[in-house]
Simulated assay, not measured.
Amino acid sequence: MNLVLLGFGNIGQGFARTLLRKMKFLSKRYGLTPRIIAAVDVDGAVVDESGLDIEKLLETAEEKGTVAEYPRKGEKGRSGVEVIRNIKADVVFELTPTNIEDGEPGLTHIKEAITAGRDVITSNKGPLVVAFRELNEMAANFGVEFRYSASVGGAIPIIGLVRDQLAGDEVYSIQGVLNGTTNYILTRMAMEGAPFDVVLREAQELEIAEKDPTLDVEGIDTACKVTVLANALLDWDSRLDDVDITGIRRVGPDVTRLAQETKNTVKLVGVANSEKLEVSPRLVPIGHPLDVRGTLNAITLETDLAREISISGFGAGPQETSSALLGDMIEIYRSKGD
């Protein structure tokens, strides 16, 4: 299976390391031998249709700052679109950073790959909150697979769980703690009684929060994930603007203390059901499945047959995201009977 990686930052490099680690496992269990034949970053690309040396690719990115410096085969200025159009790959991985405004460059990458007849796997929420239905319809029209398990919940296999094991169930509602940064902040506030600003600085020092934490603490990242889940599991045709969003900046020590006195905790919860899409701080009973600590994520589904199902796990990080990317790749391989 020949792979193209568009985006070779933390997620792209994490996935490449995962492939190195899992090569023997994939071959033994599935008879699958993945080859990275092209990698692209903001500065350029490297292409070798016989397969790139993954260790050398990672070494080049770390030491030179770009895959375009890969010995002899790297090329500065070569774009992802050019690579898609000219390289015969089986699967294109779209792993560029999320852009919630217009989904670019990921949106164009995905459209080009689908049009070229390539299966696509992405961790990028941007194209999904901008053009979810359009991309799925394109994939169906061109007869290719389009998978995005890694866009929500990291290692939590929520989309695959519903589409496979719960294929006979109708999902009525989804509730989730979907952002590790805000969950860490709220957990620390509850434990220490510290104000928001103090805990945010701590999270930034630990690199749990970004230097600009706006997307996390204002609830926008959670809203993106709610949008994807509503579209994928509830058959909505929603965009980010359809979500009613309240972040956690106004949550103070008084709120977390009062919550504890009533045997509750405060969580930033995303909700999707037939009536609304919403993100807001909510009281969650201590011991409830959504009462997860630190950077963990959790999701609870309400369905007609299985009733209520909850799942929790690590929702972010290159290794955790690679778990979902790898799962999507294996499913594509198995679906084709190769």
Rank of each mutant, 00 (worst) to 15 (best):
L3V: 08
L5S: 05
F8W: 08
I11L: 08
A16N: 06
R17E: 13
L19C: 01
L19I: 09
R21K: 15
F25S: 12
K28F: 12
K28P: 00
R29P: 10
L32K: 04
I36G: 05
I36K: 06
A39K: 06
A39Y: 02
D43M: 13
V47P: 00
V47W: 07
D48F: 14
L52H: 08
E55H: 12
L57D: 00
L58N: 02
G65T: 02
A68M: 00
K73I: 02
K76P: 11
R85F: 11
N86D: 15
F93E: 01
F93C: 06
N99D: 06
G106D: 00
E112W: 05
A116P: 04
R118G: 07
V120L: 01
I121W: 03
S123F: 14
N124E: 09
G126V: 01
P127G: 04
P127R: 02
L128K: 10
V129W: 10
A131I: 04
A131M: 07
F132M: 11
R133V: 06
E134M: 05
E134I: 03
L135V: 08
N136H: 15
E137F: 06
M138R: 06
A139Y: 05
A140F: 10
N141F: 09
N141I: 10
F142Q: 09
E145F: 13
R147D: 04
A150W: 02
S151K: 13
S151N: 14
G154A: 02
D164I: 08
L166G: 03
Y172I: 12
I174S: 00
V177E: 00
T181A: 03
L186S: 02
T187Y: 09
P195A: 03
D197I: 05
V198C: 08
L200T: 01
E205W: 05
E207A: 12
D212N: 12
D212Q: 10
P213V: 04
E218Q: 08
T222I: 07
C224T: 12
C224H: 05
V226C: 10
L229F: 04
N231E: 10
N231A: 11
L233W: 04
L233G: 06
D237V: 00
S238T: 08
R239V: 09
D242A: 05
V243D: 01
T246N: 14
R249P: 03
R250T: 15
V255C: 08
L258K: 15
Q260H: 12
G270T: 06
V271S: 14
A272L: 02
E275Y: 15
E275D: 15
K276Q: 15
E278V: 12
P289F: 03
V292F: 01
V292W: 09
L296S: 14
A298E: 00
A298N: 03
L301R: 09
E302A: 11
L305V: 14
R307Q: 13
R307N: 13
S310Y: 02
I311V: 02
G315A: 03
Q319L: 15
E320N: 14
L326C: 04
L326D: 06
E331W: 15
Y333F: 13
S335I: 08
K336C: 08
G337H: 12
G337A: 10
